[in-house]
Write a protein that binds this DNA or RNA. Structure first.
Lengths: 233, 233
DNA sequence: CGATCACTACGGGAATCCCCGAATAGTGCT
DNA sequence: AGCACTATTCGGGGATTCCCGTAGTGATCG
């Protein structure tokens, strides 16, 4: 299995899409799509082999907000076969439109996560019967997993600089206290743990809120976790 | 962190270790090991095919604190080949001892992450030459990736708290209110927005906290964002 | 059909958090 | 040295959140 060095590509965007196209050819898929979310930098990388019509329609309809394949795979560890998705209203909406644009309904999404809360989703589709799909997928599931990891690794490393630059600089004390807050401790508890006044704890918390541009502590914790500054517990 | 002793459930323990053993046989490896950490549930799961001598020595020496294979792969997206690890003092220490216990120095660790900050590390080793190792790994890297995902998925879903967190059932009102809280609104604000009493808002929040096993609202928001129930804003 | 449970809704009062002001110590720049 | 800036520490008091009790509605079940 050959892997293209995605980082060394002169035209990165084209290179990614060529990579996805080769992936389709190799694994007998109609289309492939990658969506990478980096909450730290507030960026989303998207690369697809779909036609421009579907891309435009998808964007105009804001399907990324309701797309069940994205929702479900964001919460899953294992790959998500689209046939197992709940037949919700959103599902009908997106898949009906996709079908109108000639996109087959057999597909799956492989989620990959990095250490900073970043998520990569590699989706592949093929227009065929259920039995044929099962057979094809069974043969390439492992390679797909590797491909997903490889793409996400590349994208995240190419975006590493922006991530670092975007990171707010919370002091060690602020991070320490925010981590305890996320762990469910009260300000008094934290003061006892760190052997300082609960008033001081509150000052650090206020400072953290300001740096994260958050109005409340829950919002600050949410942002800190989304950006990988602290870990959920 | 509580250490879950899967030995308490003989069938489960046997199941996982048998699985790892089969994995070794199938992929021509000497040993396989899985370590899974769920910071949310505060639990660690471990399964290995190593002999009892090495297991005991590893635990007594507290190698999990300095093991470079764990350290490096916790920060990586892609699999980490042990040959690329920095030759630090800790590396010498652990690998010298491992060698004394008859464990080959060719190996790699595949990291897998879930949406809740949980990490699974699947390591495999084989006593052979570098060239032979490269050849073997090249053939099975994709399948190893799938195996790692499969094990981590199984383990995380078998853990009670993890199961609760992975399959939360917040009511629509609870989600709605939690989303507003994550957006930095106060209970009074939310009450005004939804045209209900701020007391009622608090009840839904309390209910959300209970369902997410969170002690405080910031913790609940952190978990909800980490699980993708709501979105950071 | 009665019992039970989940969801939604409200209020009183205690506990906690948050805004204000204030002080000290370290760091970097002029 | 003087100045500006940040990190860290603390207390008072108002604002907010949290715990307890109560209650109506609808769904499920024996």
């Amino acid at each position: 299995m050959k892997l293209i060095d995605l980082g060394a590509a002169p035209d990165v965007k084209t290179q990614y899409e060529e990579f996805l196209q080769q992936l389709c050819d190799q694994f007998e898929m109609d289309h492939a799509a990658y969506a990478g979310m980096n909450p730290a930098a507030g960026t989303i990388h998207g690369h697809v082999t779909y036609g421009d019509e579907w891309k435009t329609h998808y964007e105009q309809q804001q399907f990324q907000l309701i797309d069940p394949t994205l929702h479900m795979s964001q919460r899953s560890i294992a790959p998500v076969d689209w046939s197992r998705l709940e037949r919700s209203k959103d599902f009908q909406h997106v898949f009906q439109d996709a079908s109108d644009f000639g996109i087959g309904d057999q597909g799956m999404t492989v989620p990959v996560r990095g250490p900073f809360g970043d998520i990569g989703l590699l989706s592949v589709t093929r227009d065929c019967s259920k039995d044929e799909w099962k057979k094809v997928v069974g043969n390439v599931i492992g390679d797909l997993q590797s491909m997903a990891v490889h793409i996400h690794d590349s994208v995240m490393h190419s975006d590493e600089l922006s991530r670092i630059l975007y990171h707010p600089s919370l002091s060690s004390r602020e991070l320490e206290i925010l981590q305890w807050v996320a762990a469910g401790k009260s300000q008094q508890d934290i003061g006892d743990i760190l052997s300082i006044s609960h008033r001081t704890v509150e000052v650090h918390l206020r400072s953290s809120r300001e740096k994260l541009c958050a109005l409340t502590t829950p919002q600050a914790v949410g942002r800190a976790i989304a950006t990988g500054l602290i870990y959920p517990s």
